[in-house]
Design a protein around this nucleic acid. Structure first.
Lengths: 193, 193
DNA sequence: ACAATATTATAACGACCGGTCTATATGCAT
DNA sequence: ATGCATATAGACCGGTCGTTATAATATTGT
């Protein structure tokens, strides 16, 4: 029998967004159901292990969207500095439109790393995947692998941190500064080659 | 009547730690009371506006401790690069001892920025204060004010982001890398003077 | 049409939540 | 000792939480 309804997808889509924006602990299952219009029986039918299982799949879905965003942005320019700065520009635009969706899993990572090993591991994997996209872009432009890996760790950390501070301050100033300084730091590596 | 017991302080100290580590929404008042040994009546006696008021004071207390840590670390060396790297080294040591306490308010900031304006504003103020400590160190070492402000925004973002990723990965590799690259970035500014 | 499977629907449950309230205890000054 | 102000103690409340259970309904294939 084929799945002919959308309940699973609706639940997952709403959960993915709410978990990213409000966090795991501040998002209730009833809230997800209300917003998705799905029946409660379906939630446990599709996610029999409950909230944690739903969150695990939501993190994976979020990670895929974020990866796609990073990839799309990085593909816009062959120059890695421009590409990464464009990637940050896209994040800035999202935040300015009050869309905190699919730009960060930082909140989920911070709130679950001690309370749920499966969720921590999923966030770790997501961060690893994000870093890898930056790494590949840098390698493709001539940086040695170890340097590329270091720099992508720095880029991701700076973006995550700048998002945290920017949403708190309700302005994107720190992301703009981060973008500029990432450019200066990367320039140091590329122009010294 | 003099306060001859420590209930207010105990509540606040436990709350400060638990809110930082587990977050606001995952920490229940009954948990704070249990751990602090304080009576529930005292909680509402000292914090009549409830959980949010407690969290507000907890954020301020956390901020003071973090500021003190940054200041102590930065005072260890006159050279700002060494000082900031020492500051990060202290954070690394805390994380390695499984002490996520008084190193970051990132979790609190991310989970409350949309749900509580007083808490968001308190976190904003805290971030501003942290940045200011770095800014002053950089100015004292000859950087123009605007540059110093940009760089401290970057330093704080990188530290916050690297903490997020490090606790998720359960290793401090990204903080170590962040420390090194902050050195390289700052070197670019100081050696170009 | 029927059987098997998938999905829905929803009441109920125990646990926990933040907050309220009132009686009592404590501390201090007179 | 008494009275007043401060602080404690803990029962209670209505609400929400995540989960379970079960019956009903929908869907699909033969």
């Amino acid at each position: 029998m084929k799945n002919n309804t959308d309940s699973k997808e609706k639940i997952l889509t709403v959960a993915s967004r709410l978990f990213q924006v409000k966090g795991y602990n501040a998002t209730g299952l009833n809230e997800i159901l209300k917003e998705s219009g799905a029946p409660k029986g379906s939630l446990y039918y599709y996610f029999p292990d409950g909230k944690e299982e739903l969150a695990l799949e939501a993190i994976k879905l979020s990670s895929q969207f974020i990866q796609a965003s990073i990839q799309t942005a990085l593909a816009k320019y062959s120059n890695p500095i421009e590409a990464i700065q464009y990637n940050i520009k896209c994040i800035i635009e999202s935040l300015e439109e009050d869309k905190v969706q699919n730009v960060s899993i930082g909140l989920l990572a911070l709130e679950t790393h001690l309370s749920s090993e499966p969720l921590r591991a999923a966030c770790q994997e997501a961060f690893y995947a994000f870093k890898n996209i930056y790494t590949e872009k840098l390698i493709k432009n001539g940086l040695p692998k170890e340097v590329a890996q270091e720099l992508s760790a720095v880029i991701l950390a700076m973006i995550e941190g700048a998002i945290t501070i920017s949403v708190t301050q309700k302005n994107v100033a720190d992301l703009i500064v981060a973008s500029k300084q990432i450019g200066i730091l990367l320039n140091h590596y590329f122009c010294d080659q």
